[in-house]
Design a protein around this nucleic acid. Structure first.
Length: 524
RNA sequence: GGCCCUAUCGUCUAGCUAGGUCUAGGACAUCGGAUUUUCAUUCCGGUAACGGGGGUUCAAAUCCCCCUAGGGUCACCA
């Protein structure tokens, strides 16, 4: 029997990074076993704009390269894959349960049910359903229905049973049914609720392994019972730990972003966004895009390889050594029994470290392509001429491993802004250009040498500046930072002479002039 | 609170199923040192963990029990 797994997102308008990890494990398990991975849209409770809410989720899968064999857009033998379009299946299953007496129409008013629950809580006893409606005769049910009395459909829990599952991650887990209230499986209008729709669909889609986050563990006994009542073939279960917030054990949640900003472990991720998102016209402080979402990583300039590697290593490991894994390698070696049982906090440091590694592995041409689109989006370049491409390629080469994510290209904005728009690190400009007595005269002398240099190349400039330093018997430390500050506005950066070469003589001279002007007026 | 789950360096984890070779391994982070005109990289080195208490055993991170702590879930959401 071929393995079939599924991921069943509800269309919420964004893809949660933890959900992505769950989806990844499903995808990996299916691919490892040569089976199928499908996407089902759990939209039983959605009134919102479907397309708008689904697209970001599909995009996340596409970006990471996790294809689905059946589901939205690709269809499949068990179509449709939207729960909102599968009402006939639910109606049929409902009819079966009702006629066999394993489900019943519950006419008890909601307030009454709630009151019973509260009373049970108060008296510290376990609440179970009153089942007042179970004893209604067929005629009574009929007359109540025709009188328009509201009801819900509940599944009749077999109270004398125990449910035992053998979970691929957790081993044997069991529940005592006598403690379980009868769950509502459908509303008045016949629309199904999660636990019921999931069971019907998992069976119809021939899902063999239900791999989902641990928070669903408590839903499992109900689903097992439902499968049994429906006469389904039981899927196997694997409850993987959820993804926790960095450094903690609490479930990563979109609603807690404000608090995460103050989480020191989370800081690095927010810093990336703060540095990058504003450049491409997105509000870095807006909660509509945060490190909880897959989209965030794409926009900041992560590589699918980096994110995938980090996600795969969250709660799963190959052995005691291997950290760097390509998707192909993960597919090859993935297994459920190497999934850890306790929740794993997202590890920003490690994520960035994986990302940096995969960035170094990326072919120059791909790096260029991506940086071009980031720069264009930030309006730091326009056009796509060969000149622009070559120029950007040189900057990327210079940046070398400073480029961890594509957004880091913005840290080298001195290569792209107009001389007049160059921004200065004021504190260091003061310290190295304005304050030192000799700095301005030194810079003037260097400027003169630069202007007389006909071969404005890094090695030439290197020799030139070193000769200058030796001749004047000054320390490199007196001059180098001043040159850098004057030309780039920054206190540190990539190789100084290559920087000068790429900028070119004209811009270098122009920027020195401008900087010297600033320095003089600062001295008063 | 009920039910359920979990517990190894700061973090992600290996080791636990078949107890000894674990004076507990790796990675990230961190701290030193070397390289570098700065930053980054790279290379060396260091600090750092079996939650507690009982058992079982010649021997326990590994098996059993209790405690403690953390977490998930308790919807006519998914």
């Amino acid at each position: 029997m071929t393995v079939r797994t599924r991921f069943a997102p509800s269309p919420t308008g964004y893809m949660h990074i933890g959900g992505m990890r769950t989806a990844l494990f499903n995808w990996l398990f299916a691919r490892h076993h040569g089976g199928q991975f499908l996407l089902r849209i759990d939209d039983t409770d959605q009134q919102r704009n479907m397309e708008e809410a689904l697209e970001p989720i599909l995009n996340a899968f596409r970006w990471l390269g996790l294809n689905w064999d059946e589901g939205p857009e690709v269809g499949g033998p068990y179509a449709p894959y939207f729960q909102s379009q599968r009402t006939a299946s639910y109606a049929a299953a409902l009819g079966k349960l009702l006629s066999e007496g394993t489900a019943y129409r519950d006419f008890e008013p909601a307030e009454e049910t709630r009151a019973q629950k509260e009373a049970a809580d108060r008296e510290k006893r376990q609440y179970v359903s009153s089942r007042a409606s179970v004893n209604l005769t067929a005629d009574e049910v009929k007359s109540k229905m025709s009188a328009g009395e509201p009801f819900v459909i509940r599944f009749l829990i077999p109270r004398d049973e125990k449910v035992v599952i053998s979970d691929h991650v957790r081993g044997q887990v069991e529940w005592d049914c006598s403690l379980m209230p009868d769950p509502v499986i459908a509303r008045n209008d016949g629309s199904p609720l999660y636990n019921f729709a999931t069971v019907v669909d998992d069976a119809e889609f021939r899902i063999t392994h239900v791999i989902r986050a641990e928070e669903h563990l408590s839903n499992t006994p109900i689903q097992v019972l439902l499968h049994k009542a429906l006469g389904n073939r039981m899927p196997e279960w694997a409850h993987i730990p959820y993804v926790a917030a960095p450094g903690g054990k609490e479930k990563l949640s979109k609603r807690k972003i404000a608090a995460y900003r103050n989480n020191p472990q989370f800081q690095k991720l927010f810093e990336l966004g703060d540095a990058v998102l504003g450049r491409i016209g997105l509000d870095p402080k807006s909660d509509s895009l945060s490190p909880v979402m897959v989209e965030y990583y794409r926009r900041v300039g992560f590589l699918p390889e980096g994110v995938l590697n980090a996600l795969a290593r969250l709660g799963w490991s190959l052995d005691d050594q291997t950290e760097i894994l390509s998707l192909a390698k993960i597919v090859e070696s993935f297994s459920l029994d190497r999934v850890i049982r306790s929740p794993a906090g997202l590890d920003p440091d490690k994520l960035i470290s994986f990302q940096s590694y995969w960035m170094t592995q990326l072919p120059a041409a791909d790096k260029l392509q991506a940086c071009l689109s980031f720069l264009r989006e930030a309006k730091l370049i326009d056009g796509d001429t060969e000149d622009v491409r070559q120029y950007v390629a040189r900057v990327i080469e210079l940046a070398a491993d400073r480029l961890r994510v594509f957004g880091d290209i913005f840290q080298l904005d001195e290569f792209f802004v107009d001389d007049s728009c160059l921004r200065y690190d004021e504190k260091n400009f003061q310290k190295r250009v304005v304050n030192p007595e000799a700095a301005i005269d030194l810079m003037r002398a260097v400027r003169k040498q630069f202007s007389e240099c006909d071969d404005f190349k890094a090695p030439v400039l290197h020799d030139l500046v070193h000769a200058f330093v030796t001749e004047r018997t000054i320390k490199a430390g007196e001059l180098f930072p001043a040159i850098r500050l004057c030309v780039t506005g920054k206190a540190q950066g990539a190789d100084l002479f290559c920087t000068l070469e790429i900028l070119g003589k004209d811009r270098v001279l122009g920027r020195i002039d401008r900087s010297l002007g600033r320095a003089e007026s600062a001295r008063g």
